[in-house]
Every structure is written in structure tokens, then in C-alpha cells.
Computed example of a mutant assay.
Amino acid sequence: MKPVDLHKDSIVIDGLLCAKWSRKLFEDMAKGGLTAANCTVSFWENFQNTINNVVEMNQLIETNSDLMIKVHTTEDIHRAKREGKTGVIMGFQNTYAYEDQIGYVQIFKDLGVGIVQMCYNTQNLVGTGCYERDGGLSDFGREIVAEMNRVGVLCDLSHVGSKTSEEVILESKQPVAYSHCLPNGLKEHPRNKSDQELKFIADHGGFVGVTMFTPFLKNGISSTIEDYVEAIDYIYNIVGEDNIGIGTDFTQDQDQSFFEYLTHDKGYARRLTRFGEIINPKGIRTVGEFPNLTEALLTKGFSERQVRKIMGENWLTLLKKVWGE
């Protein structure tokens, strides 16, 4: 099968997108053949402000219903594929929106939030992010993990500290994920994961989505799609073909104020890091260029079956297990 035909036939899932939501972006997602994506609707926002973001996303999906559908179950992802649309999985990159209320986990699940990252870079009530001294998973955090397991929300550990991550992996009764990360073995960075961490999550039934965010890639902003595929191959050789997928971390059309918000604790306090110029790898600069990734994986030597799994089928299997439907 030709790469373009394989891509069109495959279920393509992006495990993390935090682009600027708009009709223009949705059209590019359609061009890229994206079946579904985990779309971030909360970083540092509290309950009320996250609700406002969910309302806005609901309105966008409704207004652009010729292109988008809202995802509650894996059947919705299959329906998106059948109808030639892109499914929106709403996700958080922090548990801030839960505040100190365990019952909010169910409320947001009912609204369509199926993936939630435990911490975003720093300390919260649940545990510790990757940019400060790691105190591990709190007892309240254990209750949140149990509730996420109960209602069917995937625990994401991408920006979470090493100790907190390990304790979530051990605490959770369901598989957990690094939805978007890269290996320390190719570039040392606080956001990248060691070979041991990658193996640990896979050995416990967990999942790794590979990001193409260039500040974390070996060659930075000079990175190409081949560099990204090298990172996929590196992680594949550690976690195996069933526990790996794509989590681009595309920030398409976002402006500098967005990155300032992300790189300060709580969105406004101390600076945590500087990304510098943000540009995606040459060959996959935009979501619309997603078909190039299928071709690059085939060129690297992955089989058609392996490419289908990496591009989306593995995500589908994981989400069905965690969501239960």
C-alpha cells in the first residue's frame, strides 16, 4: 500500500494538541487526516475558568460540526473515522481544575474530559511536576487517582516529576501514560524521560506518546521529521510496539503570551524555563503535514501493521481499557 493510502486508511490519533482552536486549525486537522486528538482545555485554570474553556470548546465543536465531533467513548473515535471528521478528546494538563474536590473528577468526565495530567511542571495538591523538588504523590493525590480509575479518566504523567510518576504508576489500577515525552537518551532535559522511566511505565502496562516539541529534540529547532522518527524508534525499542503512540504537542497558531503563560508557575509566578523559538520539525511543521509521518515511519523500516499501531491503534486500545467503552 502506498504511504498516502495507508495514512488515509489508518486511525490517526494525536495524544496531545494545545494549538489555538479555530476553524482554520480544524481544516488543517482534516487535511492531515487526524481521526482524533487530546485537546488541552486546562493548564493553570481553576474549576470555573476551566468550565469556561469547556463551554468555548463545546461551541467550537458545534459551530464546526461538519469537521469535528466530541469524543466520550472510543466508539465516537470510530464514528469520526467513518464520517471523515476529527474527534475532540478534551484533556487537562493539570489537576488544578479539580481544586480540592474529588467529585469534580466525575463532573468533568461527564463533560467529555477523558485524559488528565496529574501536575503541570510544579507542585499541586496531587503531587509534584518535573521542575521542582519531587515530594511524590500526596494522600489526596491517591484519592484522585482512585477516582480517575473509577470514572475512567487516563492519568497522564508527561510533565510530572519522576518520584510522583513512579508512585502514580504503582497506585493506579488502570494503565497510565506519558502522553507526550521524549527520551533523555537522545537529549537530557527535565521534561525528557530516562530509559528506566520509559521501561518502568511499559512494564506496568503503561503507554508512551512521543512528542515532536523541538526544544526537547536532539537538534532543537534544526530538527527534522527524521529526528522525530529517530526518537520514536528509540522509545519503541524500549517499550515495544503495543505501548507507543504519537503525542505531538503541536502549539500551532499560538502567540508568545501563550508560551509566557506556560513557562511561569501558576501562569504568572516564577519563570520555570525558556523555550526560545518554537518551530516544529522540518517535514511536519503543521498538523496538515501528518501524512508525512506515516511515510517517514515506513521509510525508517516500520511495517504497515506497526505504523497503524503507532499512528493510532495503540491509543485506541489504551483508551478503551481505561474508559471501559
Rank of each mutant, 00 (worst) to 15 (best):
Q256P: 00
E295G: 05
F250S: 11
K163G: 05
N121Y: 10
R274P: 00
K8M: 11
L316G: 02
T294V: 08
Q123H: 14
L6P: 14
Y228C: 03
Q252G: 10
D227W: 11
Y261N: 15
F259N: 05
T95D: 01
I11W: 03
I201F: 00
E167P: 14
V153H: 04
K199D: 06
T35L: 02
C39M: 11
S138R: 00
V229C: 05
G185I: 05
E62A: 13
V88T: 12
N94T: 15
D110F: 07
A177T: 15
L25E: 13
G283V: 06
G136M: 09
E83L: 09
E166I: 14
E304G: 04
I201Q: 00
A202H: 06
P215W: 15
A177L: 12
Y96K: 13
V54C: 06
G103P: 00
I115N: 11
G141Y: 01
L298Y: 06
N94V: 10
V239R: 07
H180P: 04
A177I: 14
G206A: 08
C181Y: 03
Q101T: 12
M118S: 00
Y96I: 11
C155H: 08
W21L: 13
V208L: 02
C39N: 04
I169Q: 02
G161V: 08
L137D: 06
K218F: 08
S158N: 08
R133G: 01
D227N: 10
F216N: 11
F216T: 13
D233P: 07
N192F: 10
G185F: 02
K85E: 08
L6H: 12
G283Y: 01
R271F: 02
I169D: 03
V307P: 02
S65V: 06
S162T: 15
A177V: 14
H204L: 03
R23I: 03
A97F: 02
K218V: 09
F207M: 07
S223N: 04
G103T: 12
S10Y: 06
A80V: 10
I115F: 11
R308L: 09
K31W: 08
C181H: 03
C119Q: 08
G245K: 00
S223H: 07
F92P: 02
D265Y: 04
S162G: 05
P190G: 03
Q101S: 13
N192S: 14
C18Y: 14
I278M: 13
I11H: 04
E75P: 00
N38T: 11
R82V: 13
E62W: 04
